[in-house]
Simulated scan of single mutants.
Amino acid sequence: METEAAASTPRVVTPRAWAGFEYSFPAIRGIQAGREYYVTMCPLRLIPKIFLFDDEDLTPELRAQRVLNKGRLPALAKYILDNPDDYVFSALTGSVDGDMKFDALDTDGVGFRTGQLRIPMGARFLINDGQHRRAAIELALRENPDLGEETIAVVFFHDAGLARSQQIFADLNRHAVRPARSIGVLYDHRDAEAQVARTIAGHSTIFKGYVEMEKSNLSARSRKMFTLSALYYGTQALLQGLQLKPDEATDLAQTYWETIDKVLPEWGMVRERQLSAAEMRRDYIHSHGIALHALGRIGNSLLRESTVASRWKKQLAPLEKVDWSRANSDWEGRAIVGGRVSKSHQNVTLTVNYLRHHLGLGLSPEERRVEDAYLRGEE
């Protein structure tokens, strides 16, 4: 029996013209928690037509899903459109408020689990998981209708009311854990800057053997100096807006980080086993992600302004005189907040500003705004 809340959820009024018509999907029948469910393949062109969203004006307790974050959709749709030959979307999960009928191929064995799933066109389809994928598919189809003949896996459950649909949403998202950014970089073969970061992490004499390739946080006893994600963001900042071929980008990034290595003696001390990686991370700022990101931004501005390679290399020399130790009170409020290194955008900018000052470089309008706000806070 439906709860009072479920009964108040808006239902789609189906015209009488749909009576007697039905969708038919090839499907596999399964059992979870004593309930039947079905796994099928659905053409992309049908996804926006059958799956409907709850009214966003409803209060959260009367909805079975979160409000759609429309800001995520352009990137998801672009992903499909830019990679028509190798995009991958995982299955959608939905509940069907209607009389689903499964026609098995046989009375037992494999044939009992496979067959045709028939759903009346007047049934209500509610998406429990994958609403952003569904909306992105709709956007992509507007630009490339040919995608409509492709398919996506869909898991159908019987709609047992609002409370059950809300529980499905909660259960599907309860244990979801976003993978560490480092392993995302490691496995991403579309991102050119990820390829650069992987290459120099595996082949550069500075980084080889000292980059954590899977985790985005280093344990206190780790022998690694950097994470792949930190190296990625630093290299991404370095190459931002530079129109380079892949090999040129890799060579430039490697040359830049080798130049930085010469003005940060502790990096070499770790490789020569005169200092442990754990001690360096504990006592110095320059092995943390915020420093690599800031150094990447510094390098980007020097590369844009310099036409001679030797010039930007010489301009980096004053970095050797920077006190990178965490004991340096100048880092408090810039790279360190409350005794902990902070990687927020504002703190990255304040660290960049500090390094620009030591290099005799001016600040951009945005950097000046952040710096003035910081200085006002100190008064």
Rank of each mutant, 00 (worst) to 15 (best):
D57H: 10
A77H: 01
S95T: 11
Q116V: 14
E22P: 01
D86C: 04
V88R: 15
I50L: 04
R29H: 08
K101E: 07
I119M: 09
A33Q: 09
V88P: 00
A19W: 00
R66Q: 05
S24E: 15
A27Q: 03
T107R: 07
K70T: 15
Y37K: 11
A64D: 15
D57E: 13
A104P: 07
L44W: 03
A91N: 07
D85F: 15
A33K: 04
D103A: 13
K78S: 15
K78E: 09
Q32R: 11
F51M: 13
D103Y: 14
L73T: 05
F21Y: 04
L62M: 06
A77F: 04
K49G: 00
E36W: 04
A17N: 01
I28G: 11
K101Y: 05
A64P: 06
V88G: 06
D54N: 04
Q32A: 13
A17F: 00
D86E: 06
E22R: 09
F21S: 00
L105M: 12
G30A: 14
S24D: 03
G71R: 05
T93Y: 03
L46Q: 05
G94K: 08
K70Y: 10
D97R: 12
C42S: 06
D57L: 11
E61Y: 09
D99F: 04
T93F: 06
P26N: 00
L44G: 03
F112E: 13
F25H: 02
G98M: 11
R66V: 00
S24R: 15
D85T: 15
E36I: 01
L117M: 10
A19R: 10
F89S: 03
L92P: 10
P74F: 07
P43Q: 12
E22Y: 05
N69Q: 14
P120Q: 10
L92M: 14
L81H: 09
D54E: 10
P84H: 01
D108S: 06
R35M: 12
F112I: 04
G94C: 12
D108E: 07
A19Q: 11
C42Y: 05
V96P: 07
V110N: 05
G34Y: 12
V88I: 15
F89Q: 13
F112M: 12
R118V: 11
R45C: 07
